[in-house]
Amino acid sequence: MRNRGHCYAIAEGRPVRESRLPCCGIGVGWFLFIVGFFLGAIPWYIGLLILLCGRIDYREKPGYIACTVAAILATVAILLGVTKGDDDWYDW
């Protein structure tokens, strides 16, 4: 077979090692997501604020997005729970 001019780059040197994630290696985002089930969704709102306002490592982004989705669902559940028994606003 003839070589048709394809060149492949070969990376030489030591492989780049990334630093270990905090909170036992799972990252702060997933830690806040798990703890949010035990502490009444407050950590999910903290994760949402960190995602919106902070600089985060790309490896931790899925955990913060999970916190955001959980915070939105918790807000909807709280709003539906608060307004479920209150039908007085229909009687205008």
Score class of each variant (00 low, 15 high):
Trp89Cys: 01
Gly47Cys: 04
Ala11Glu: 10
Gly13Phe: 03
Pro22Thr: 03
Gly13His: 09
Ile78Phe: 13
Ile34Cys: 07
Tyr90Ile: 05
Leu73Met: 09
Gly13Cys: 11
Val82Thr: 13
Ala70Val: 02
Cys53Phe: 14
Thr68Val: 06
Ile10Ala: 15
Leu49His: 03
Arg55Asn: 07
Leu79Pro: 01
Arg59Gly: 07
Ile78Leu: 10
His6Gly: 00
Ile26Trp: 03
Ala70Thr: 04
Ala74Leu: 01
Cys23Asn: 10
Cys67Pro: 02
Leu51Trp: 09
Pro22Gln: 05
Gly54Thr: 07
Gly5Cys: 12
Tyr58Arg: 15
Leu48Ala: 13
Arg17Val: 14
Gly54Pro: 01
Arg4Asn: 15
Tyr8Phe: 14
Glu60Tyr: 04
Val35Phe: 04
Ile26Tyr: 03
Ile78Ala: 13
Ile34Gln: 05
Asp91Gly: 07
Gly27Tyr: 02
Gly13Lys: 08
Lys61Phe: 10
Ala9Thr: 14
Tyr45Met: 05
Gly54Tyr: 10
Tyr64Ser: 01
Val16Thr: 14
Phe31Trp: 10
Ile26Gln: 11
Trp89Ile: 07
Leu39Met: 12
Asp86Pro: 06
Tyr45Ala: 10
Val16Gly: 12
Leu21Gly: 05
Asp87Phe: 13
Ala74Pro: 01
Val82Ile: 13
Tyr8His: 15
Gly5Val: 02
Val76Trp: 08
His6Cys: 01
Leu52Trp: 15
Glu12Gln: 15
Leu21Met: 11
Arg55Leu: 00
Gly27Cys: 03
His6Ser: 10
Ile50Trp: 10
Arg4Lys: 11
Val82Asn: 06
Gly36Pro: 00
Cys24Glu: 15
Asp57Tyr: 07
Trp89Lys: 01
Leu73Gln: 08
Arg59Asn: 11
His6Tyr: 07
Phe38Glu: 01
Cys53Ala: 13
Gly81Asn: 15
Leu80Arg: 11
Asp87Arg: 08
Gly36Trp: 00
Asp86His: 12
Asn3Val: 02
Leu80Lys: 08
Ile72Pro: 03
Gly63Pro: 04
Val16Leu: 14
Pro62Ala: 03
Glu12Gly: 12
Cys23Ile: 03
Gly63Arg: 00
Val16Trp: 09
Ile65Phe: 07
Ile34Ala: 13
Ile10Thr: 14
Pro22Met: 02
Arg55Pro: 00
Glu60Val: 03
Leu80Pro: 02
Ile50Tyr: 06
Tyr58Val: 13
Thr75Cys: 15
Leu51Phe: 14
Gly81Ile: 05
Gly63Lys: 02
Ile42His: 04
Thr75Ser: 13
Ala71Val: 04
Met1Asp: 04
Cys23Phe: 09
Tyr58Thr: 08
Gly29Phe: 02
Gly63Cys: 04
Tyr90Lys: 09
Ala77Asp: 14
Gly47Gln: 06
Asp91Cys: 06
Thr75Gly: 08
Leu21Cys: 02
